[in-house]
Amino acid sequence: MTTTIKLRALEKDDLTFLHKLFNNADVMHYWFSESYMSMEKLKESFDKCYDNERNREFILTDGHEPLGYVGLFDIDPRHRHAEFAIIIDPSHQGNGYAGSATKLAMDYAFSVLNLHKLYLLVAKTNEKAGHIYEKLGFRVEGELAQHFFINGAYEDAIMMGIFQRDYWER
């Protein structure tokens, strides 16, 4: 894995890359979402949410090549927490980018935004992702039984979180 990976703000030019990800059923399965997003809807959403202070959306890059998408959602300034989510392009999976991207997002959340806590939901069956999050300091906070309907069946989800103080102790 190269050391030139970074997060940069999502730009309108990235919508073609996002469109590809958001219409990939294998990718969206892990986002508990339907793989159905028109380019027009994506453009409309981008324009509408561009200045939304409650979200930070990033493209993970290696130089100019997009590798994935990272988001901090529902940033709550009073309680100082946000939800973390990530997609690594399937053509770049298995190269350690998810761990590096998560660490970059954690650095941003705790150093720049001064959040108290980051949390996420991960499918219980997505053991690889759960392992990455645990390795980076996220702890299981609970299980949501049959919380998401995916591919014709209900799946359990795991809620995980990490506090700023625990992040700095690592």
Rank of each mutant, 00 (worst) to 15 (best):
Y50E: 04
K103M: 11
I162D: 12
N55W: 13
K6Q: 13
K6E: 13
V122M: 10
N52M: 10
F58R: 05
F73S: 06
P90C: 14
P66S: 14
K41Y: 04
W168A: 01
M39N: 07
T125Y: 05
H19T: 04
A129G: 10
R78P: 03
I5M: 09
Y108D: 11
D26P: 06
I150A: 05
I132R: 03
R165Y: 04
G68I: 14
L18M: 09
P66G: 08
P90A: 11
N126H: 10
L118H: 08
E134F: 06
D76F: 05
R139S: 12
K103D: 02
A153T: 05
T61H: 09
Y36L: 12
I59H: 00
P90N: 09
E57M: 11
H79F: 11
D76W: 04
E143Q: 15
M159Q: 09
W31C: 12
L144S: 12
D89Y: 14
H81K: 15
Y30I: 09
G161R: 02
S100H: 01
I158H: 13
D26R: 09
V27P: 04
F110Q: 08
D89T: 13
E40G: 02
K103T: 02
D74K: 08
R78I: 14
H131M: 07
H81I: 06
A9V: 13
H19N: 15
N55M: 08
F58L: 13
N114C: 01
L144F: 15
F110P: 04
Y154R: 00
N151Y: 10
M160P: 01
A145T: 05
T4V: 05
V70Q: 02
M37K: 00
A129F: 07
E141Q: 12
E141K: 13
H131E: 08
D89L: 10
G63Q: 14
T3E: 15
I87F: 03
E155L: 11
I88P: 10
N55E: 15
L104T: 02
Y119F: 07
T125S: 12
A109Q: 04
E53I: 10
E127A: 15
L67S: 01
D166R: 07
L144T: 07
L72R: 00
R139W: 00
F84L: 15
N55T: 11
K117L: 09
A9D: 13
I158E: 06
N23Y: 10
Y167K: 14
Y133D: 06
R80A: 13
G96F: 11
K20Y: 14
H147Y: 03
T125C: 08
L7F: 02
Y108V: 08
G130F: 01
K103Y: 01
A123Q: 11
D13M: 07
H147P: 03
V140K: 15
S100T: 03
H79R: 11
R78Q: 07
N23H: 12
G142Q: 14
